[in-house]
């Protein structure tokens, strides 16, 4: 049984969105990407705050980081979303841009009820 109320919008059955997968949907005229990252669900607006690219359609990957000595590692694989226009990187969990503290992509709450996923908007 699925329902869509004023603020809760049905997206997909949770069983159809496995870890590492995403689905694009449209809610109240806005394109939204819903992601499963290791069993947790995240929803991100498909509009890059940089120049308006379709960021929710880009690669999901990780990030390079360096420790205090400058030794480089590749971390957080599967948690970083990249806009396909310019490759700008956003934290899938918060929407924050990795290099610009004031820039973030819109995020929305996702919840599961009776095996179905809903986005609050």
């Amino acid at each position: 049984m699925t329902r869509t109320t004023d603020r809760s919008h049905h997206v997909i059955a949770a069983s159809e969105l496995q870890p590492g997968q995403r689905v694009l949907t449209e809610i109240r005229g806005r394109e939204v990407g819903v992601f499963n990252v290791d069993g947790q669900y995240y929803a991100i607006g498909n509009y890059c705050p940089h120049m308006g690219g379709p960021c929710a359609e880009g690669l999901v990957t990780g990030m390079f980081d360096a420790d205090d000595r400058g030794d480089v590692s590749f971390t957080r694989d599967g948690e970083i979303l990249c806009c396909p226009w310019h490759g700008w990187q956003f934290d899938l969990k918060t929407g924050d841009h990795l290099g610009h503290s004031k820039l973030r992509v819109l995020t929305y709450d996702v919840f599961e009820e009776d095996g179905e996923l809903y986005v609050r908007m």
């Binding site: 990957t61 396909p84 310019h86 490759g87």
Partner: peptide, 10 residues
């Protein structure tokens, strides 16, 4: 890096 990793797909 944004090109050779494939991030800037366009």
């Amino acid at each position: 890096p944004h090109i050779t990793t494939g991030r800037a797909e366009i």
